[in-house]
Amino acid sequence: MSLRSQLEDILKEMKSTGDVEASAIVSRDGLLIAADISSSVNADAFAAMSATMLGAAETAMSELGKGTPDRVVVESPSGKIVAMGAGEKALLVVMTTPKANLGLILLQLGKASKKIEELLG
């Protein structure tokens, strides 16, 4: 099984959690590695801005001497975005419906990010 299809399987599994509208695996410098996103969204911009968001949050946190954040959660009336590191090279980001169960999402996200870290080394 190719690395790409292994990564895509992880994203599919994320989607089966329910309430997940889109997900992506992104390199830390903002390049799209794998995505499960509808064609109406600009996946490249989504990937780049996810890297920006997580990068800025990590720097803000470490500048305050609080270490590395576990995740970034952004909420709006029409949905949530959660970004989480997946090893040194990549990050995982999902977009959900507004009523999504955050606890469940975070649990799945944590499992998925560990798998990605193992795959990408």
Binding site: S27, R28, D29, G30, A48, A51, T52, M53, G55, A56, E58, T59, E63, K89
Partner: peptide, 13 residues
């Protein structure tokens, strides 16, 4: 100065 850089390039500012 601080930089938000990943893998050798600036990703935020």
């Amino acid at each position: 100065a601080i930089s938000v850089d990943r893998l050798g390039t600036t990703v935020a500012l």
